[in-house]
Simulated assay, not measured.
Amino acid sequence: MTMDTITRSYERSAQLSLFRQVYLWMAMALVITGFMAMLVAESPTLLSLIFSSKLTFFGLIIAELALVWYLSARIDRISFTTATLMFIIYSLLNGAMLSSVFLLYTASSIASTFFITAGTFGVMCVYGYLTKRDLTSLGNLCLMAVIGLIIAGLVNLFLQSSLMSLIVSGIGVLVFVGLTAYDSQKIKRMLLQEGLEVNDSTRKIALLGSLTLYLDFINLFLYLLRFLGDRRG
């Protein structure tokens, strides 16, 4: 076995180790979010506290946005332990907000949509990781489309158009399918640029990557649920 072969084998092993951490942390966050959502959905007191009080509702939204912004902007200046704790807190807050899903849709349709989302997400992650094509232009297009989705969603709060909601949901699915592939490739590049040694710096990049993919998964799931979910009678 030559030295080049040993070096390449080590690099692949280190790269796969870091990527396993990305997906393990993302899976951990999804599990935390799911359990928190079910816990809140089964508690009339917590549901009333969150959704009957505008102060609590908008306070949670602001807290979520603040956590994501702080993690993204300050990841280099905080410890890995602090970053992990903030990610867990964000997962809990997001779970509380997503508890409404269990009130709007049947459990069976939520479960089936989750597995469809997982399959689609997995395929796009593999594609983003393996493809030689530069997905930067696709990612930039999808990021601009996210802004359009937010604006269209706000406008439809006033219009209450079911057709517009359906169109926005369809575009949302396509956008987050594209973003999943782009983000997977971007995380791979960031880890390669930083170096393949498993240390605090690369672990923080992996954690931030897991947050990015977690957000892609949640948004893809929610947009698919609007198509595939069976609403409670």
Rank of each mutant, 00 (worst) to 15 (best):
M1H: 11
D4F: 10
I6T: 10
S9Q: 15
Y10M: 14
Y10A: 14
A14R: 10
F19W: 11
R20N: 15
Y23A: 07
A27H: 01
A29M: 12
L30V: 08
M38S: 09
L39H: 10
V40L: 12
S43H: 09
T45P: 00
L49I: 05
L49S: 04
S52P: 00
T56C: 13
T56R: 02
F58K: 02
L60F: 13
I61N: 14
I62H: 07
L67M: 09
Y70N: 01
Y70R: 04
S72I: 05
L85A: 15
M86R: 05
I88C: 04
I89S: 06
Y90S: 03
S91M: 05
L93Y: 08
N94D: 02
M97I: 14
L103Q: 14
Y105V: 02
T106Y: 12
A107N: 08
T117A: 08
G119P: 02
T120E: 04
T120V: 13
M124Y: 12
C125S: 13
V126K: 00
L130W: 07
T131S: 15
L138I: 11
L138D: 03
L141K: 15
I147V: 12
I147D: 01
G148N: 10
G148Q: 11
A152F: 06
L159I: 15
L159G: 04
S162D: 15
L166I: 06
I171Q: 01
V173F: 06
V175T: 15
A181C: 07
K186F: 13
K188M: 04
L191W: 01
L192F: 14
E194S: 14
G195W: 08
G195I: 05
E197Y: 11
V198S: 15
D200H: 15
T202G: 08
R203L: 15
K204E: 04
L211W: 03
F217V: 04
F217R: 01
N219C: 02
L220D: 00
F221W: 04
F221V: 02
L224C: 04
F227C: 07
G229A: 09
